[in-house]
Simulated scan of single mutants.
Amino acid sequence: MKSLAAVLYVLSLGTYQIIIVQALIPDSERKVLDCNVTGEWHSELGSQLHLSAVGPEVRGVYRTAVESTRGAAGPNREAKVVGVMSDGPQPTVAFSVLWAKGSCTTWVGQCFAVPGGGQVLNTLWMLRSAVTSFTDNWDSTRLGEDRFIFVRGVESP
Rank of each mutant, 00 (worst) to 15 (best):
V82C: 02
V120W: 00
S103A: 14
F112C: 08
V84K: 13
G74N: 07
V81E: 06
R30I: 00
V82L: 11
F134D: 13
R147Y: 02
V10Y: 10
W99S: 05
S86P: 06
W107N: 05
T135Q: 08
S68A: 13
N36Y: 07
W107I: 03
V154Y: 00
S103E: 07
A53G: 07
A23I: 02
P91E: 05
Q22Y: 10
V7C: 06
V84D: 07
S86K: 04
K101E: 14
A65D: 00
V21F: 03
A94W: 04
R59D: 02
P75N: 12
T105K: 11
E67R: 02
S68E: 04
L51T: 07
N137Q: 08
L45G: 03
R152G: 02
W125N: 09
R30K: 15
G109H: 08
L124M: 14
L49R: 09
Q90A: 12
C35R: 01
S129G: 01
S12E: 10
N137K: 06
S156E: 15
T132G: 10
A73R: 05
K80R: 13
A5Y: 12
C104L: 13
Q90W: 04
R70K: 12
F150R: 02
P26A: 07
Y16R: 02
L45A: 14
A113F: 09
L13R: 11
L121I: 01
A113P: 07
W125A: 04
C111L: 13
L8R: 02
V10S: 10
V54Q: 14
V37K: 05
A94M: 14
S28R: 01
K31L: 07
L13H: 04
V81N: 06
I149S: 13
E67A: 10
P26V: 09
P89K: 15
G39N: 07
L49V: 10
P56G: 01
D34T: 15
V61Q: 01
A100M: 06
